[in-house]
Design a protein around this nucleic acid. Structure first.
Lengths: 166, 166
DNA sequence: CTTGGAAAGTCAACAAGGCTGACGTAAATT
DNA sequence: AATTTACGTCAGCCTTGTTGACTTTCCAAG
């Protein structure tokens, strides 16, 4: 493993050692990433799966069940269990599709938005602290690497969510 | 929410919108991050929990059970279930501690190292592709943000693993 | 207008991998 | 000698994922 340079650009950042560091950073950081919402959810009847559903319904109001399945990457049986409790508890509303009545358009109720706010406030607070500590250039790199790490399918999901912005 | 600048430095990277993007990037990227090892493990009797144990035993040969508990952040009952199958199947060896005989020093057997290699090769391959695509500056930022995102305890674990390097 | 198939929902059964609580043993420490 | 520590284990529970089979609804093409 010669520590070579190519046109003056060091490739030291591609050593197995550096890659392992990145892998462990992902592992430990993801724990922090989920810690705050998990803390809020514990005690309620909900878990991380509910958080994810709530997040993406909030993000794309009116989304259908099958669209959500694609984003979350779970089976409909698994999602259905989560969605059912959220609907029963009045956090999510499933409106019969207007053009296609087989579809259910999912929306957060006021109560659902309250919980969403609570969860995302906590998660954003940590993210904001990390961003602030790292600075804008680091944040740019962070996003670039994460995007490159996604499966192509996931990247499409990620980017298509991006398009809906104004 | 005025889009202010402070001393010429834009704070636009701290908007809720940017933070949400980062949150979703973490979600989708983590899926990619675990996808390859998961694929290898499925079909074997092992799962992500086994992968984590194998990874950190490989990383710190001779580590004790309680040290591993601290790193993984699970209960001893949960870890024990995983560890027991790995020991039974001859992937991990638990040697009685030399100075303190209550401790068990954990090591990978040749068979365990084979699997570790297989898993980490797959995970590193993705990481390497992402790093290469993003470039060294982005990688630097990536690591900086992830580190800032960790809980202080996790950051100590992360950094103390760093110290053992040569 | 009928029919094929997609979308959604549901039931049942199961597995992985978390958790708590209780208990036992050996070894180290006080 | 008593207590604490490290580890292992039994039992039971929960969340969240999986398959497989089946029904209902309803769009769209023949």
């Amino acid at each position: 493993m010669a520590e070579s340079t190519t046109g003056g650009e060091s490739l030291l950042f591609l050593t197995d050692e550096q890659l392992r560091k990145g892998i462990e950073a992902m592992f430990f950081a993801y724990r922090g990433f989920t810690a705050d919402p998990d803390r809020i959810l514990e005690g309620m009847d909900y878990g991380r799966a509910h958080h994810r559903a709530i997040h993406f319904i909030h993000r794309s109001p009116g989304t259908t069940v099958s669209n959500l399945l694609g984003i979350l990457g779970v089976t409909k049986q698994s999602l259905n269990r989560v969605l059912r409790t959220l609907i029963e508890d009045g956090l999510v509303e499933a409106r019969v599709g207007k053009s296609d009545k087989r579809e259910r358009n999912l929306h957060l109720t006021a109560k659902g938005q309250d919980l969403e706010r609570q969860l995302s406030d906590a998660q954003r607070a940590r993210m904001r602290a990390a961003y602030r500590a790292a600075g804008p250039a680091a944040v740019q790199g962070f996003r670039t690497v994460l995007e490159a790490m996604m499966d192509p399918e996931m990247r499409r999901q990620y980017q298509s969510l991006r398009e809906g912005e104004r």
